[in-house]
Simulated assay, not measured.
Amino acid sequence: MIWLTWRQFRTQAVVALAALAALATYLVILGYQMRNAYATDIVGCQPADCVSARRDFADAYEVQVALIGALLIGVPALIGAFWGAPLITRELEERTDRLVWNQSITRVRWLAVKLALLILISMAVTGLYSLLLTWSASRYDELVGDRFGALAFASRNIAPIGYAAFAFLLGTVIGLLVRRTLPAMALTLVLFAVIQVFMPIALRQHLMTPVTSTVQLDEEAIERADFMGFDQNGARLDGYTMPGAWSLTSTSRVFNADGTPYTTEQTEQCRQSDRQTAMACTARQNLHFSYTYQPADRYWRFQWIELSAFLGLALLLTGFGLWRIRTYSS
């Protein structure tokens, strides 16, 4: 049974290995390029030049890292559509199901062997790709520090392995229910894309209870914000991000030490022509703001939670598929 499964799958396996080899070559070259640039331009840079050096480094590799990360996010979807969806529909459309399901091997065992082998291959291919990308982009991730970002989180470390297993089982079960290859492939791609969008936008941040704390508005906090402005309700701070954390607050209200809003009138004493002097003056006013976030040290817990969740969903789909095929009638 394993031999038969391999014979049916060998073309896809060869294509996947060739693509992985090409990607591995590119990622190794890109990784060494970023390491050399990091060692030359970032390590030991003069304080006056570090900001521009970091910006130039990020600009030079941002597009490449984003594209290769987006491609990795697409790999589980392709596995589900091109490996999972045709697994059963191919037999149904070619009418070979009447032959293979009436042998000494039961249809449940037939499907179980196929699923076991192909899930392992799917997870291995995606895991190797993720490992290579994680290594290659490590210097970029260290500099940019956006590990919780939707694209970065879903294309690094162990979470993509769970996506691959789930996507493959999703395609297989949809194919078993729809019975036609092309509709099953299309539906798999759509459903998996919806889940991948829904997860970071609506669900991931609630996997663990966020932390809300009061942050002192010092010079470092001002530097880590995108903008500080005023409206009718007082001062606001936009885009502040704690180092390594996942920021769940986009705009924060700024308050005085006694809890009253920090107003435009209070900024008069800090209106300086020099930005650094103005920042230092603002920092001395003992201001603070509320900030909600997921701490940096929770990153691996989120990775394990998401991996476990998608592997759990894959197991449920496996159970449903084995039950469905046992009661299946052509």
Rank of each mutant, 00 (worst) to 15 (best):
D56H: 13
V125N: 08
A77I: 11
Y38M: 10
R55H: 13
T106H: 04
A70S: 07
Y32T: 12
L92W: 09
L111S: 15
W110M: 12
Q33A: 10
A48Y: 10
D97C: 08
V28K: 04
A22W: 00
R90T: 01
V43T: 12
E93W: 11
A21Y: 03
Y61T: 04
I88W: 07
R54M: 04
Y38A: 02
D49Q: 07
Q64A: 13
P86F: 02
E91A: 11
G69Y: 00
S104A: 12
N36M: 15
G31A: 06
R95Q: 14
R107P: 01
W83I: 06
W83P: 08
A37G: 08
L92M: 15
L115Y: 12
I68K: 10
L78S: 07
V108I: 12
A53E: 07
A85F: 06
Q33P: 01
K114S: 10
Q103A: 15
A77D: 00
A85E: 02
N102P: 09
G80F: 00
G44R: 03
I73L: 15
R54T: 01
V51R: 10
T40A: 14
S104K: 14
R35Q: 11
Y38N: 05
V125L: 12
L87W: 08
V125M: 09
T96H: 14
A77Y: 00
Y26I: 15
E93K: 03
D49P: 10
A48C: 07
G74S: 14
A39V: 09
D56A: 14
E91Y: 10
W110A: 05
I119P: 01
V28W: 07
R109P: 02
W110F: 11
Y61F: 15
A112M: 03
A66C: 09
Q64C: 09
N102F: 11
A53G: 05
A53Q: 11
L118P: 00
I29M: 14
A21I: 07
L78I: 10
S122F: 03
L99E: 06
W101I: 01
E93V: 04
F82K: 12
A48K: 12
Q64R: 09
I42Q: 01
A53Y: 01
Y61S: 08
V63Y: 14
E93R: 02
G74R: 11
A24P: 00
C45H: 00
A24Q: 02
A21G: 15
A37L: 08
G69F: 00
Q103V: 11
Q46W: 10
T89R: 04
V63G: 08
G31H: 03
T96V: 13
A116K: 05
A21K: 15
I73T: 13
V43Q: 11
L27T: 00
T25H: 13
I42R: 01
K114M: 01
L87E: 00
V28P: 03
L27H: 01
L23M: 14
V113T: 02
T25Y: 12
L92C: 11
L92Y: 15
L72E: 04
S52P: 07
Q64I: 13
